[in-house]
Design a protein around this nucleic acid. Structure first.
Length: 815
DNA sequence: AGCACGCCGACT
DNA sequence: GTCGGCGTGCTC
């Protein structure tokens, strides 16, 4: 008897044991998809995780209905990776499965059945249910499991289907092919039999009273004679605006032109010419040799290169080397919006061998990437961290660009993982190399590199010896005392911005807070507007004329007077980016000033439009949130200013200083990329702050040593391993009780010094759920595994309390 | 997670 | 008298 551990696409712990029917034992393999019954009537697509011979004792295993794959859809490296993710990040395999697979590859009761072609059915031997199903299938070729419920009792569905499958009367539809329709593009051509000169002139003559149609006909003809090999897309004809759909249709109706369809890749692949990439400079060649030497010693690389130091160039070189070895490349980015530069450069060279993958693709597009990865048609995949879960086989290199970015570490679809760390693990399973790249590496990666776990390579100079921007601190307190300020800007900064614009240069202003003002407060009674779902005040958005909650997205109209005491005066407190933008428009009325943040970029193509505008130098100053620190490489920006830099440090988080440093440096990197005359102005009340002082130093070691020292002193990563647990529930007393319980269970096993909390989360309620948190700081040693097992055990004990089952748990390992 | 079962409040 | 709320149990 052979059994299989099956991963089901459900938020449930572990795997489920099913019996593999005798006739399928030979064909079964870990990584294949199977159809299994679950909870009586429901049918799910599961994944074979393991195959074994141990019959379960506690329950009777049900049988697998059928195999959906002939070869494993998930390679063993990927299964290993899933197992690691689930074990390390304390999450369910079912959640990983749900997160990784495009939904059309894991159909549930939506799965379709059909009659096997060319079978003669012996109705004598069928029971009534089987008969109903066959009859239904004779009427409609395809039938969905949910539809079957209409005429077969729920409990007998599986039995009926199973019976008919066994009799070979019906089969599971290979729905990927059915559901997934290949996208076709329409093309036009002159009817081939008309291409005799005599006929052509007749036709042209015939069309002389329909001038537009004649023109269109001639234009198609011209294209065909000029580029006989290149099919002409209908949409290109229409896009010019010269011709309309009706004219094309008339020509088709008259039988002069023919419309035909060609299969089109749903993914927009590059159709232009393939170009060589520039060769490396001498300095880059040296670095490249260092990288190769590290790889030859099986070491991964941290490429710490100041902004525009040519990291991309080095990536490209390694990508090429990897491809030439017949292996594939995964290129990770924090978000897909910033692929522009890298993909443009890669497209030129690799064209169709390039693929893209991210959370914004449609299901069809995802299936296509899956298929291409499986067929080895994609050699380079550019994607966000979820690409790590694609069924790679032949990985030779993973690049993690902007490795410090917070987008790599977030909680999504029921689990938390760090894309950068996971990339290192996945690479190990594939024996692949990794390059982590950043201008401002995370403190953790820097520590790994300087303690020898990664090869550290520092590029201190910009490519082509362009000078790095210089920093200037503006003591805002002093400026205020001397009455040399207007609102949030010092007169000095305003003058510099004006001069900069006068000399034809652009500037960027960073203010990392959305909205116009943080709070509206009643002058008389102090009333502030709280969000009804969350324990936070609503932010005033002046341009949208409303109050917004930044945590749940709730909107409310701006109150005209205090709803409590009817006071007329509502004070705006706390400065948002909208206000900075408005102020600047008043202070520099002759300049074109635009704002870039999630609120102003929400409209379709807003980002693209502004991008073009900046590129065309039609704007003088861009005011924005952290959004402006990513992916905006404009040649003409010389000044970057941070008017209220102190706000970057006022975040209650052990990474606040690191993040402030990274954000300032990243945005500073936008300045003087070509001119080498980049200037960064930091206005602060506290110019003595270490971070501001150290940012001016060109040696990053100083700042990293400082940050590491702080982490050591206050026991934070990388010197301890953290596990952060957040419990959420609609009822506050219930979460509080449960959190206290979990705290006490943890304290049974883990020393007091390692446990912080439980305590109310800094934001006590988000989206109608109250939240409590526990932070574990575990020693970084061999004991870590022991402690982690205790955490697992504690969580299991927690789960045993039935009334705590409704409490949502979020677990962040390496928080 | 989902879905059924079972036990207490406000309504045609 | 019911409809329906959500607490509890269970899924191979």
């Amino acid at each position: 008897m052979t059994f299989a551990e099956i991963i089901l696409p459900l938020h449930l712990k572990g795997t489920f044991t099913y019996k593999i029917p005798e006739d399928l034992v030979e064909k079964s393999e870990a990584g294949m998809r199977v159809l299994v019954p679950f909870r009586g009537k429901k049918i799910y697509t599961g994944i074979i995780f393991k195959i074994h011979q141990e019959e379960p004792t506690a329950f009777i295993a049900k049988e697998i209905i059928s195999l959906l794959d002939e070869v494993a859809i998930l390679p063993k490296e990927q299964l290993q990776f899933w197992e690691w993710v689930s074990d390390y990040y304390l999450c369910f395999l079912g959640d990983i499965y749900r997160y990784s697979f495009p939904s059309s590859l894991k159909l549930e009761s939506e799965t379709y059945l059909k009659l096997k072609p060319h079978v003669t059915i012996d109705f004598q031997n069928l029971d009534s249910n089987e008969m109903y199903l066959i009859q239904a299938l004779e009427v409609r070729q395809l039938i969905n499991l949910t539809d079957v419920e209409a005429f077969i009792p729920k409990k007998e569905i599986v039995k009926t289907i199973h019976g008919l499958l066994e009799l070979q009367y019906i089969e599971i539809d290979e729905k990927i092919a059915e559901k997934y329709k290949i996208k076709e593009v329409s093309y036009v051509k002159i009817k081939p039999d008309l291409l005799k000169n005599l006929e052509l002139s007749n036709i042209i003559n015939e069309l002389k009273r329909a001038k537009k149609q004649q023109e269109l006909f001639l234009s198609i003809l011209e294209h065909q004679t000029d580029h006989p090999e290149k099919p002409l897309r209908k949409s290109t004809l229409l896009n010019d605006g010269l011709f309309g759909v009706s004219q094309v249709k008339s020509l088709i109706d008259k039988g002069f032109v023919e419309e035909y369809f060609l299969e089109k890749d749903r993914l927009q692949s590059y159709e232009g010419e393939i170009e060589e990439i520039d060769s490396l400079s001498d300095a880059q060649n040296l670095i490249n040799e260092e990288i190769e030497e590290a790889f030859s010693k099986n070491e991964n690389v941290l490429l710490h290169g100041v902004t525009s130091s040519g990291k991309t160039h080095l990536y490209l070189e390694q990508i090429e080397t990897t491809i030439n070895q017949g292996k594939n490349v995964l290129f990770l980015l924090p978000e897909i919006a910033i692929t522009k530069q890298i993909s443009q450069r890669l497209e030129k060279k690799y064209g169709k061998k390039l693929g893209f993958y991210h959370q914004k693709l449609t299901d069809f597009e995802r299936v296509e990437v899956w298929r291409k990865i499986k067929n080895n048609e994609i050699q380079i995949l550019i994607g966000t961290r979820n690409s790590l879960f694609l069924p790679f086989k032949n990985l030779g290199l993973i690049v993690v660009d902007e490795e410090h970015d917070t987008q790599y570490r977030k909680f999504e679809n029921n689990f938390f993982y760090n894309g950068k760390d996971s990339a290192l693990v996945l690479a190990k399973f594939h024996n692949a190399n990794v390059i982590l790249g950043s201008a401002t590496p995370s403190v953790e990666s820097y520590h790994l590199a300087t303690s020898g776990k990664l090869k550290y390579i520092y590029l201190s100079e910009r490519f082509g010896n362009v000078k790095l921007p210089t920093f200037e601190l503006i003591n805002f307190k002093e400026e205020q005392d001397f009455k040399k300020v207007k609102g949030n800007f010092s007169n000095f900064l305003i003058t510099e911005l004006q001069k900069n614009a006068d000399s034809g240069k652009q500037a960027m202003i960073l203010h990392n807070r959305r909205g116009f003002s943080n709070v509206l407060e009643c002058e008389t009674c102090g009333y502030v507007n709280y969000c009804s779902n969350c324990d936070v005040v609503m932010t005033y958005h002046k341009s949208a004329h409303e109050m917004k909650c930044h945590y749940c997205g709730q909107k409310a109209s701006k109150p005209q007077f205090c709803p409590k005491c009817h006071g007329q005066k509502l004070n705006e407190r706390g400065v948002g980016v909208e206000q900075i933008h408005d102020e600047l428009k008043v202070l520099l009325p002759n300049l074109e000033i635009d704002r870039m943040d999630v609120d102003s970029m929400r409209k379709k193509f807003a980002y693209e439009k502004l991008y073009e505008k900046i590129e065309a130098e039609e704007t003088n100053i861009i005011v924005g949130t952290q959004m402006i620190s990513k992916g905006l490489d404009f040649e003409n920006v010389d000044i970057v200013a941070i008017p209220k830099a102190d706000s970057l440090l006022h975040i209650q988080n052990f990474r606040a200083e690191e993040r402030a440093y990274q954000l300032i440096l990243q945005v500073a990197g936008r300045a003087g990329r070509v001119s080498g005359k980049g200037k960064v102005y930091i206005q602060t009340y506290n110019p003595q702050h270490q971070i501001f002082q150290m940012i001016q130093e060109e040696n990053p070691k100083i700042i990293y040593d400082y940050l590491l020292e702080e982490r050591k002193k206050f026991k934070y990563p990388p010197f301890v391993k953290t596990i952060f647990i957040e419990l959420k529930h609609r009822k506050e007393d219930k979460v509080e009780r449960s959190a206290r319980f979990l705290g006490s269970v943890l304290r049974k096993y883990i020393p007091e010094v390692c446990i912080l909390g439980p305590e109310k989360s800094p934001i006590a309620k988000i989206n109608t759920l109250y939240q409590y948190q526990i932070l574990l700081k575990l020693p970084r040693s061999k004991d870590y595994t022991t402690y982690k097992n205790f955490v697992k055990k504690s969580l299991e004990e927690f789960d045993e309390i039935t009334s705590y089952k409704t409490i949502k748990k979020e677990i962040y390992v390496d928080f």
